[in-house]
Nucleic acid binder design. Structure first.
Lengths: 217, 217, 217, 217
DNA sequence: CATGAATGAGTGTTCATTCAT
DNA sequence: TATGAATGAACACTCATTCAT
């Protein structure tokens, strides 16, 4: 899927990138505070440090800004994650480290995650599939590393299981942000990571009482 | 936390309930399609089958509609879940059934879940804590059943683990709705339920290769 | 000019009068507080002690209520004034007493005066002339008494002067109400009356310096 | 009391003044015809020659327009009056000229006076005191000139009398506008001025009959 | 390239008035 | 007669977007 280009009137590419950086920076802050819909283009322009007229030299519609924000965020996360995964592959130990790394990255970008999370559906019919595609890619990255562990024989999972685990990991990374109101009261980030990893790998631990009895035997 | 009452101008309680039912029904459909912000009060009125004037006889502000939708949904899910949990308690087997039941309920209310999920943050400062409280209650219900299994000795988990598992279950119930674009292509609902249950209880299964060996030691 | 009748659907005349009394009473209070435009028909109905439906059994349009209020007020003032003037006629002394009486009456009906004063222009093109006519009648009453004093030889004034004095008196009666924010801080009602009477009858008193010099001599 | 500034979104001060001039001009005409409440913001925008959007670039709320109108009017009258009073001070002759001048000014601004008079109470709790303060200042200007005549010995009046006379003059200036329906049928402006001045300075003239006799003594 | 004034469709909300019960 | 639910025209105000300078 090709990159969905947001058209700019300005030709100077350097400038386009610079201005969009300013824009995205300002927009994230505002979206975080008031959401996409309650944020006006004027506010974004002001936060970015230029006029409303200038803003529209670099985008076509308000929605473009949201797209730019979300797009940038995905790229950042994916880039970092890719770099990490490239160096750690194939072993369960490496997988654990990568998941932990991913959780920490997501915690680091909490605000952006929240924005993406809550406003993505505001993207129009054209931008949405592109964004979903990025998610699929990211989930795919986890599928790959887990899949490698399976190939190695370190894990024994079906393809279906691999896919779902990848989704679960992906969502649990977001959870820390979007359920912060509950989770961050109960756990530190490292506690959260440790617990989730444990659950991910071992599930709920059975007690001794029923050991050997009934169940799925 | 007391119920946050949405005031109506109309006195006839029966009528209020009836009209609000119509309202909620119409609103959910619209919110799902276009989100809360892009849906106009006029559209909601039309979808509900009455005029804009009548709509405002039953609410005070547009936000009230969102609150009504979310509130109703929570109540429904909680009520059904409570009823289920009341009859199935204490065993892992019952817990599994309850989780499956919960997943199915959430799948059944996909649209509402989606709306709640993406629009909840649009609720004002007064309604939001009330809604979050409802979530806490629902998560608490799962904490209880799992906790009972721990007391029985059927499960061996710390309080922290219990809490996080409850959150995970809760979120996985929502996942089916808000990640439908990916999950519902890959799994049937029953497959999804079975897989998630398996992962919840057993985690990733290790292969035989590395059995007995340490990490990178 | 015939009385402008406000049509009622209800036939029972006694009831019409009773309900309209309730209505006027409630309306005056509300108009005083928030003005005619900011007062809703529902509020008036509630203040009157019956439903909005019932309200409309006794009037045709909201404006009718304003008319009813203003009309009632004029009638009251005129009635009282007439009674007073009937018994005190022809002498300057009696005129002074009547003016003082009128001032006191207006002070007594301050709220109503204020309402009439500020909202009269909200009366439609049909009701307004009728109301203005009532004012003309009241001014005419003063013209008469003053005119009688002229006929008696107690006062020496042209018709034009008589008319203007009548207007001045009329307005000075209202002044106490509509300039209350300034006058009632500086004067007691009786002081106000005494001073105005003095000025009315003697004008500004010249000092001794210029006596006999230049000017209009 | 500081000037209550009405905020504009537009930065160009010259433009703000120009557009507000258009606005005020259009608004006065409309307010005169239909009153403040019955005039819509769109009508004002149209009358001013620009769009509703543009209107709101120069004000924040509809009420601001009323405030602008009233404020402008007070400033104009006071400015002119001040200029006049600065050059004519201390003598009864000058006082008469000033009063006549004031009456003519008010007649010149009839429409604005009418608007101010009938709609001032529609100003919110923040703007009203500011407007009343302007009235107090204007009344104060008359108090001063009259007071000077007293100091000169040209007039023999108490402070209380001076204050009340100032109020009377002020109101009589407005009267020509708000009782136009009666006064302007009976008098020319110059007749009105001459008569009022005469009454102000000499009051009602007693006839010869009773000369020398007391009241009811 | 940058600016910011101008635009007007669109939105939430109100409220006088009607009419079936 | 009395009620109050229903209606929808009307209103104040917002904001994305354009375009002349």
């Amino acid at each position: 899927m090709k990159k969905r280009e947001v058209e700019a009137s300005v030709k100077d590419e350097r400038l386009v990138i610079k201005r969009r950086d300013q824009m995205i920076k300002g927009a994230v802050t505002l979206f975080k505070q008031k959401g996409f819909h309650r944020t006006t283009t004027r506010e974004i322009a002001r936060a970015a440090g230029f006029s409303i007229g200038t803003l529209y030299e670099y985008i076509r519609k308000k929605e473009d800004i949201l797209y730019l924000v979300v797009d940038r965020m995905y790229d950042q996360i994916r880039e970092r994650l890719q770099k990490d995964l490239d160096t750690n592959q194939g072993t369960v130990e490496a997988l654990k480290l990568s998941i932990a790394y991913y959780f920490r990255e997501m915690a680091d970008m909490q605000d952006e995650v929240l924005v993406m999370y809550q406003e993505a559906k505001s993207l129009g019919k054209d931008a949405l599939p592109y964004v979903l595609n990025k998610e699929i890619q990211m989930v795919g990255m986890f599928e790959n590393v887990i899949g490698n562990c399976v190939k190695n024989g370190e894990l024994d999972l079906t393809e279906q299981e691999v896919k779902l685990i990848a989704h679960n990991i992906f969502v649990q990374g977001q959870m820390w942000a979007f359920r912060r109101w509950a989770l961050q009261k109960a756990y530190s980030l490292e506690e959260y990571i440790e617990l989730q990893l444990d659950l991910l790998f071992h599930g709920m631990k059975e007690g001794k009482v029923k050991l050997g009895t009934g169940g799925e035997g």
